[in-house]
Nucleic acid binder design. Structure first.
Length: 230
DNA sequence: CCAGACGTTGTT
DNA sequence: GTCTGG
DNA sequence: CCAGACGTTGTT
DNA sequence: GTCTGG
């Protein structure tokens, strides 16, 4: 997924009671502690860009905004979260840029065709931070997958979606086997999403607001002056 | 052993 | 061109 | 993804 | 924290 100026909330499910499996059994994972204390489903605000608990500073998050579903279970930066710290990131939709002529890009807004809310598969981390409120910083990343045919014309990658019937399993902290977790993630149904071109105002991150998701007034080909070709 | 990365997208 | 920040 | 910087000394 | 590369 190229980018989303998606809804900022994260629907997280902390890890459950059993001891941490795999690496770093004795590790000081702030996430474990937090999860044990609050072993309930929660709605939280999280910073976009995963900051693993072992990170020395938050800057690493800028490079960890997306995680490939094909490899997240084995990547050092993601595998722990994949097993233990899964979340759902709700969004009205996401943006993707389609290569146009002459190196230009046309942004599109992609959203559920049924008018609903997207449930994007995410991973979260809890990072001990002296600066953050409560001494911890919540961060998250979005899993990406190969785009389905309907939106694949715009871009070849898309966020991994979680179907409602799989919410419980996806958020289940006792489900830690990577293969089992992977099996929960199925391709979005064809026709699940719709898209339309939007203003390039979305290109500038300082811009934000409802105008970004407004459909671009479609100029019929016939109304384009020949002069615009030059 | 220590140092450095730990990631994806897309573009050349 | 490449890296960082948003 | 796009936009914007690409630098140091020393001070708020 | 853990892995890879030097």
């Amino acid at each position: 997924m190229g980018e989303g100026r998606a809804a900022g909330e994260e629907w997280a499910r902390p890890e459950g009671g059993s001891g941490a499996a795999g690496e770093g059994r004795a590790a000081l994972d702030a996430g474990e502690e937090w999860a044990r204390a609050e072993n309930v489903r929660e709605l939280n605000i999280a910073r976009w860009g995963l900051v693993p608990f072992w990170a020395k500073d938050v800057s690493i998050g800028a490079r960890l905004i997306n995680a490939r579903v094909e490899t997240a279970h084995e990547k050092p930066a993601f595998r722990r979260a994949f097993a233990l710290h899964r979340c759902i990131v709700p969004a009205d939709g996401y943006y993707e840029w389609q290569a146009a002529g002459g190196g230009s890009k046309q942004p599109h807004f992609i959203r559920p065709a049924d008018g609903g809310v997207l449930a994007m598969a995410g991973l979260y981390a809890v990072w001990r931070s002296p600066d953050a409120a409560g001494g911890r910083l919540l961060s998250c990343t979005i899993l990406t997958t190969e785009a389905t045919d309907d939106v694949g014309r715009i871009h070849d990658r898309m966020p991994m979606l979680v179907e409602p019937e799989r919410f419980a399993a996806w958020l289940d902290p006792d489900l830690t086997d990577p293969e089992e977790v992977r099996s929960l993630l199925v391709p979005a149904a064809e026709g699940r999403l719709e898209s339309y071109p939007v203003s390039t105002a979305v290109n500038k991150v300082a811009n934000n607001g409802p105008e970004l998701v407004r459909p671009l007034p479609q100029m019929g080909t016939s109304s384009v002056s020949p002069l615009t070709l030059f």
